[in-house]
Amino acid sequence: MRSTPAAAALLFLMCAVAPPAAGAAQIELDRIVSRVGGQIITQSDIRRARTLRLVDDVSSDQAAQRALETRMLILSELGRAAPLPPISDDDLATRRAEWTSAVGGEAKAEALLAQQGMSRTELDAWLQDDLRVQAYLRRQFGMLPEAERGRAISDWLSRLRQRSDLR
């Protein structure tokens, strides 16, 4: 062919309709990356947690996975402990506002929730659990001086992870 654009167009067409090479065309949809107390954490969970900033540390997949594992461990401990006071509507609203701000505003939040297939109800349930985790940690470790509190929580979480066979 003489015309370069025509050659480029032909090449593009060939690439576009060429059948995928065998073995390279399989696309991973999801996989289990971790297990905590009988519940699984999948790659899609990590993706959703990072996209929607559902955990504090979303700097990497590993960080988000660790944060999800920690969250599940604490919720499991919380389930066995004495009941906490119910979460007030005001507290939930505050937490909701914090989250909306973290993801970039109301419009962005709506778009991200739709993209990740998470409903407002599910989000509220997640945020309520966040508040329960915070209340539980306050109750268990709040009496310690601030300087010691972080270390104590970290040691406690290490033991929980070891008990659950998490590295």
Binding site: Q26, I27, I32
Partner: peptide, 23 residues
């Protein structure tokens, strides 16, 4: 897909479980 991964995992026979798609 995720629901199926959870169900397969719950029978306790498999370590690594993944889902792939072939167009």
């Amino acid at each position: 897909v995720r629901t199926t991964l959870a169900r397969i995992d719950s029978i306790g026979l498999f370590d690594q479980i993944a889902a792939r798609a072939l167009p």
